[in-house]
C-alpha cells in the first residue's frame, strides 16, 4: 500500500506504522504479559514437577514427559483418538457449517426463526443435548437405526452400534458435535453480508445460476471465515472432551478416550497435576505444529481488501 505514497514520506510512514501497530495491539499485549503469561508459564513449570495439588510441587525434571512417551499406553491411545477426531470433525464441521449458512442466507419467510432454531443447540443445556443424542443414536431404539432399518435388511447387515461400537464411536461423536455447527454458521452469515451486491448482479446478467454464483462468488469471498473456522476447528478439535465425557465415558474400549479426557482424569481422578500439565504442553505443541502448517493455507484465502 505504501507504493502509492510519495517517496519522501515512505520511511516516515513505515516508522510511524511500527509505533501505531504496537499502540493498537497494546491492550492485548499488556493482557498477555499480565494475565496470560504467568498461568501459562506456571503450568509449563508444573509439567516438570510432581504435584498432587495439596503439597507443594517438587521438581522431577523430565520424568513426566518420559513416562508419558515411553511407559504410558493410554497417552498414545488418547493422542491417536484425538488426531482421528480432528481429521474427521474439522472437514465435516466446515461443510455442515457452510451448508447451513448457505441455506439460511436467503430471504425466505421465517428465516430469522430458522436461524435461531439452528443456533439453539449452542445454548441448550448439555443434558438436554445428551438426551437427544440417545434418542437418535441408540442402537435398538434410536430413531436413526429405525429409519435405516429397511437399508439394513436390504443389505442383510447388523444395525450400526453408533456410540456403543468401538469402530463407529469416534464418528458418532463427530456427528453429535455437528449440532453446534450453528456457531460457525453465524460467522459465515456475517461474512456473507460483506459480499458486494453488484458481484451477484453482474453474475446474474451473465446468466449464472445460483449454484454457479455460490461457487464463483460466495464461496471464494467466504474464504476468510472458512479459514478462520478451519483453524479454530483444529484448535477446538484437539480439546474435544465434553461430549465423550457425557455420552461414552471414553469407551467403548477407550475408543473415545481423547487426550483432553485423559488429562482431566490425570488431574481430577489421579491428582497428578504435574503429569497433566505435561500433557497440556504436549497438546499445545502438537496443536501448534498442525496449526502452523494449516496457516500456510492463508495464501489461498481471498481477502477482498488485498486484491489489486
Amino acid at each position: 500500500m505504501a507504493k502509492k505514497t510519495k517517496d519522501g514520506s515512505l520511511t516516515l510512514l513505515i516508522k510511524r506504522e511500527k509505533k501505531v501497530g504496537f499502540a493498537f495491539a497494546s491492550p492485548w499485549l499488556i493482557g498477555l504479559a499480565v494475565f496470560t503469561a504467568f498461568p501459562m508459564l506456571a503450568s509449563f513449570f508444573l509439567s516438570f514437577t510432581r504435584y498432587d495439588m495439596v503439597s507443594s510441587p517438587r521438581f522431577i525434571g523430565l520424568t513426566n514427559y518420559r513416562i508419558l512417551f515411553f511407559s504410558d499406553n493410554l497417552f498414545w491411545t488418547s493422542l491417536w483418538n484425538t488426531l482421528y477426531h480432528v481429521m474427521l470433525a474439522v472437514p465435516l464441521g466446515l461443510i455442515v457449517g457452510i451448508l447451513l449458512a448457505l441455506l439460511l442466507n436467503s430471504r425466505i419467510r421465517g428465516i430469522g426463526v430458522y436461524r435461531t432454531i439452528f443456533y439453539l443447540p449452542n445454548v441448550v443445556s448439555i443434558v438436554a443435548m445428551g438426551l437427544l443424542w440417545l434418542w437418535l443414536f441408540q442402537p435398538h431404539f434410536g430413531l436413526i437405526n429405525q429409519v435405516l432399518d429397511p437399508v439394513y435388511s436390504l443389505f442383510n447387515m447388523d444395525p450400526i452400534g453408533w456410540y456403543r461400537d468401538a469402530s463407529w464411536s469416534k464418528f458418532t461423536i463427530v456427528l453429535m458435535g455437528l449440532w453446534t455447527a450453528g456457531g460457525s454458521m453465524i460467522i459465515y452469515l456475517a461474512q456473507m453480508q460483506d459480499i458486494p451486491k453488484e458481484y451477484y448482479e453482474a453474475a446474474e446478467i451473465d446468466g449464472a445460476g445460483s449454484l454457479r454464483r455460490i461457487y464463483h462468488i460466495t464461496l471464494p469471498l467466504m474464504t476468510p471465515s472458512i479459514f478462520f473456522n478451519f483453524i479454530m476447528g483444529i484448535i477446538a478439535g484437539f480439546q474435544v472432551f465434553a461430549i465423550a465425557h457425557i455420552m461414552t465415558g471414553g469407551g467403548p474400549a477407550r475408543s473415545t478416550y481423547y487426550f483432553g479426557y485423559y488429562l482431566f482424569d490425570k488431574m481430577i481422578m489421579d491428582h497428578q497435576m504435574g503429569s497433566a500439565s505435561a500433557m497440556a504442553w504436549v497438546l499445545l505443541f502438537v496443536t501448534l505444529i498442525i496449526t502452523i502448517l494449516a496457516l500456510r493455507l492463508n495464501r489461498y484465502v481471498f481477502y477482498l481488501g488485498e486484491q489489486d
Binding site: 471414553g250 469407551g251 467403548p252 474400549a253 482424569d265 481422578m269 489421579d270
Partner: peptide, 21 residues
C-alpha cells in the same frame, strides 16, 4: 497411585466384559 481405582481405571475394562467383547 490409582485413587479412583474403582471408577475409570476399572470400569473401562469391566464394560468391555459387559458388552461381551
Amino acid at each position: 497411585y490409582a485413587p479412583n481405582w474403582h471408577a475409570m481405571d476399572w470400569m473401562q475394562y469391566f464394560e468391555e466384559g459387559l458388552a461381551g467383547r
